[in-house]
Design a protein around this nucleic acid. Sequence first.
DNA 1: CACTCGATGTATCGGGCCGATACATCTGTA
DNA 2: TACAGATGTATCGGCCCGATACATCGAGTG
Lengths: 217, 217
Amino acid sequence: MLDMAILGILHEAPMHGYELRKQLALKIGAMRAAISYGSLYPTLRRLQASGWITEAGESLPDDELVPPLTSRRGRVVYKITAEGKERFEELLAQTGPESYDDPGFGVHFAFFARTDTEIRLRILEGRRRKVEERREGLRDVLARAAERVDAYTLELQRHGLDAAEREVRWLEELIANERSGRPPAQRAYQPGDPGTETSAAQPGHEDDPPGQTPRRQ
Amino acid sequence: MLDMAILGILHEAPMHGYELRKQLALKIGAMRAAISYGSLYPTLRRLQASGWITEAGESLPDDELVPPLTSRRGRVVYKITAEGKERFEELLAQTGPESYDDPGFGVHFAFFARTDTEIRLRILEGRRRKVEERREGLRDVLARAAERVDAYTLELQRHGLDAAEREVRWLEELIANERSGRPPAQRAYQPGDPGTETSAAQPGHEDDPPGQTPRRQ
DNA sequence: CACTCGATGTATCGGGCCGATACATCTGTA
DNA sequence: TACAGATGTATCGGCCCGATACATCGAGTG
């Protein structure tokens, strides 16, 4: 799942690990907690070994022509490869059960702007089905369990049920929107990204957050 | 975290793995998905090695006096030990950051009926603080990011923000209830468990779900 | 000017937990 | 009788996390 998220972020611009993690937090931080370095760096290594990303060796500040005086190790900038882009497309189109659970759905949803409408619908419906099942389970338990469990456990289940019902309604709305042709939400819509084309690879566009220092090349 | 959940369940009655998993799902299934056997059995092993639980070797059906004809391996019933009960009390009283994140909070909350009011309040407030931080983060991003991210990412963040706000309100309510002396929710309250005593070790009481076959002893 | 502090930055290690898988038993039911 | 589905125990590879270590850099502060 991390693979998809990282490839998706690097698809928009080359980046080093630290910055990558921050962008990741912005993108999928609404669903799952920020990913840890203990996951990030091994995953980068794996992606590199698979040939999906490469090190784009950062050009050190110009005055550093005398290379490693104090074992200088600068930032490592990663860059997606052509195979990586293919792999990302493949992951985007994937609609298994792992696309419906919490972390998987969050990542998929975060990249919905690059996903085909058809796939979007399939994922939204799969997620809905999953949350509905959870909701039904909680309803059963609550209906049957009032005399068996303590009030706190009951309250926890009630809260869980509420969250599930709410998410189903949210998904219904999204699905309806999707079917009616106007993909995202109507409130606060933003022009400038007119559509669903999946291969927009202009490198280094305006997405650079302020305070960063992207190098030339 | 699993340790606490398992000890808590076994505190109420001895049980074998399969059944344990089902009870676990009932107890904490509202927060986290059902725990897998790939976690359960190794954890049971670990708990046993630590001396917190023991195998209570199931008394096979009476007619089975000829033991292992076909390499018969019956169900393994686990039972909490005195040290295990101590350990459980210790875990109940623990209020670190790990009690505030999603899985940890869920487990703690599920056993609030066995937790001191003081600890309950500390955990609820810690959780609130954590969710508030998350909420603030999402608000900042949403306020600043409308021009930077696509509509889907925006929608995901809006949904996350909504969930966070809702949980904070829920926690406020619980905290207010807690402070005002009447611990759990007022709706659907159930007598029969009158209070907050932390050492109620009557083994095998009425908590046995129907359809199960608890053995004598 | 020296010092410190917090942000930036890369990386490893042990361990918890999961999904997939395997295999055996028991209980209906066609 | 045979088959399906629930019950039941168990392992294995692998993802991911928290803790930890270490190094650099800019901004204050005394």
